[in-house]
Nucleic acid binder design. Structure first.
Lengths: 131, 131
DNA sequence: GACACTGTACTAGTTGACCAGCACAGTAAA
DNA sequence: TTTACTGTGCTGGTCAACTAGTACAGTGTC
């Protein structure tokens, strides 16, 4: 059974995504397993089907699931291997957040640090130093 | 001289904030130094004074600068010590981004991981909301 | 007091993220 | 073919983040 916490800044589609991801990483969902249809899950969670679609789509983008029009959505082959490094990254994220909180940063500031790092890592040409 | 890159997802006020912070961390700006007035800097960067105000306000919240109504904005005493751990965090952010990119994540997914970690991390009071 | 500077506060427009509503299209079994 | 399921695509509403416009208020010098 899937569960949601409805509050802003905690998008539903990301929660759905994360829950499926965890089940794949833990082995509760295996390659070939069928996921609830978008309508079924949407009804269960009392959200719009499109919200579930969005979660499924991102999982598909990362090759964790496979959707077949008219048939359903399935756990992809090799999904577990995809999901595990993700779990590792979640651990890194927790470490980063821990340090940020110790410095008294707000969530926005922590996110800004990541965004900034993302930009400057993208273009190894110049290091973003301005002064 | 301050510089901006105008693109979405890279808020101007955060860029201003980051540049001032770097100058403090590097010693280019010292305690007591006066910063450009909000209007001066706004004119120079071709943005609205309020955008500069927002940057200054967040820096003030973190005790990096001190604003005095009618006088100006100054680098706060002890600002350098505040700025240096921040630079360390930027390093952590870079490491995190590096790993995320190796996993083939998009920026949005990496940010989602941080957001998720932020939520699930302890809720010690609240995280110093600014606005 | 007049003036030129400084920061402050309120309001509004633009944009994007998120979610919902609804119609459309593919698949499979009776 | 019909029916009941499946996913897809388009559109619009709501909300928050970001930025701008404009008026207000404090400080210092003449």
């Amino acid at each position: 059974m899937f569960e949601l916490k409805r509050d802003r800044g905690n998008p539903v589609y990301l929660q759905i995504q994360a829950q499926i991801e965890r089940r794949i990483a833990s082995g509760a969902l295996c390659a070939g397993d069928v996921l609830p249809s978008v309508r079924t899950l949407a009804k269960q969670l009392r959200v719009n089907p499109n919200t579930v679609v969005r979660a499924y789509r991102e999982l598909e983008f990362r090759d964790l699931v496979e959707t077949r029009h008219g048939e359903g959505t399935f756990v992809a082959a090799g999904a577990e291997k995809q999901a595990q490094p993700r779990a590792l990254l979640a651990e890194r994220a927790r470490e980063f957040v821990h340090e940020a909180k110790e410095l008294g940063l707000t969530k926005e500031q922590a996110l800004a640090a990541v965004k900034s790092a993302w930009r400057s890592s993208g273009k190894p040409g110049k290091s973003g130093q301005v002064a």
